[in-house]
């Protein structure tokens, strides 16, 4: 029998093999954790919100500092460029001003009529309120999502779902807000849907982003009036985030599967942007439990359910009908 015992592995080799095994296990665990996180994000998209705001709180001010001298240089170059051709531009502007003045005189009359009519109809309109004006500090331009960062956050009064508007049109809305930073979902992001109307026909629809320079008009409601190239698209104010009348873009291609819109304001070319309050803010109301006639189980109270309201304890309860509350007709909940 020339069977020999297997040679004992040297300790260095053993160590190497053990470490390789450990690293393989860790690699597998890490990938599994990544997939779990993905599923978690699917179930609850708000999971990572607080960590995200911590990360953007660091990144946005950093870019704000870095881009300051670049902005200064750009302004200097623009200033030099403005100096040339100032005369011809002034003449062009004067002619434009004359035209605009004529239109203004006409619209003043109409505005007064509109005010009178609104007073007659008792129309109440919320006011647009600018919270802060800032520059876009950073932007994810090389990714499957189109987001930007502002170097202002909750400290300046910004909160979730506020419209971000540039000089020429809509830019996006705030998504996650940290203390000194906020993440903006640009209108070109695939997740973005802006309720719009076509200015000429008044037809409502949604302007959807698709990670491309243009938007697409989807879900038009009402009779399908034919579009024209050059139709202006403005926000409708539906949904309560974007105020009505903000330019979104211009139709550049009429297609049956979805007209193509060029944004009025290229989201990342915007100089300064303003963050406004949401057009119609949801009133903050505490959750109230339903009306009960019977006592609720103890478990419901200990698990954090809102406190139940007994019908007998309600202010409008009629003491005479109280003993037969179960047989009484159901009182509508105020």
């Amino acid at each position: 029998m020339d069977w020999t015992q297997t040679p004992r592995r040297s300790s260095a080799m053993r160590r190497e093999q053990n470490l390789a095994l450990v690293s393989a296990v860790i690699s597998g665990a890490v990938m599994a954790a990544g997939l779990l996180l993905l599923l978690l994000a699917r179930v609850n998209p708000e999971t990572a919100s607080s960590i995200r705001t911590m990360a953007t709180d660091v990144a946005a001010p950093a870019w704000g500092v870095v881009r300051a001298p670049i902005d200064g240089m750009a302004r200097l170059v623009a200033g030099i460029g403005d100096y040339f051709g100032a005369v011809s531009r002034a003449q062009a502007l004067e002619t434009q001003l004359d035209l605009a003045n004529a239109r203004l005189r006409q619209s003043r009359v109409q505005a007064r009529e509109l005010v009178q009519l609104k007073r007659l109809m008792a129309v109440r309109e919320p006011k647009r309120q600018v919270i802060v004006t800032t520059r876009i500090a950073a932007a994810a331009s090389g990714s499957v999502v189109r987001t930007a960062m502002l170097a202002v956050g909750a400290a300046a009064g910004v909160s979730r779902d506020m419209p971000v508007i540039g000089a020429d049109g809509l830019v996006g809305r705030t998504q996650d807000v940290g203390q000194v930073s906020s993440l903006v979902l640009l209108i070109t992001d695939p997740l973005s849907r802006v309720p719009v109307i076509i200015e000429r026909t008044g037809q409502a629809g949604l302007a959807a982003g698709r990670n491309q320079p243009t938007l697409v008009l989807i879900d038009r409601v009402g009779p399908d009036l034919p579009l024209r190239v050059g139709d202006r698209i403005v926000t409708s104010g539906d949904g309560g985030v974007y105020p009505p009348g903000v330019p979104v873009g211009v139709v550049i291609e009429v297609r049956n599967d979805g007209p193509v819109i060029r944004p009025a304001q290229p989201p990342l070319g915007a100089g300064f942007v303003t963050v406004e309050t949401a057009w119609l803010q949801m009133p903050a109301a505490a959750a109230t439990g339903p009306l009960f006639d019977a006592p609720v189980p103890v478990e419901a109270r200990t698990r954090g359910a809102p406190k139940p309201r007994l019908r007998s304890a309600e202010p409008g309860a009629d003491p005479a009908t109280e003993p037969t509350a179960a047989a009484a007709p159901i009182v509508p909940v105020p």
């Binding site: 990544g34 997939l35 996180l37 994000a41 995200r52 953007t56 990714s143």
Partner: peptide, 23 residues
């Protein structure tokens, strides 16, 4: 994985996409 998770947070992607792919 850590670098990818940071990328997810900064770009506004769902946490885990780049983390998994980078790992």
């Amino acid at each position: 994985f850590g670098v990818g998770a940071l990328a997810d947070l900064l770009f506004g992607q769902p946490l885990g996409v780049n983390a998994t792919l980078f790992a």
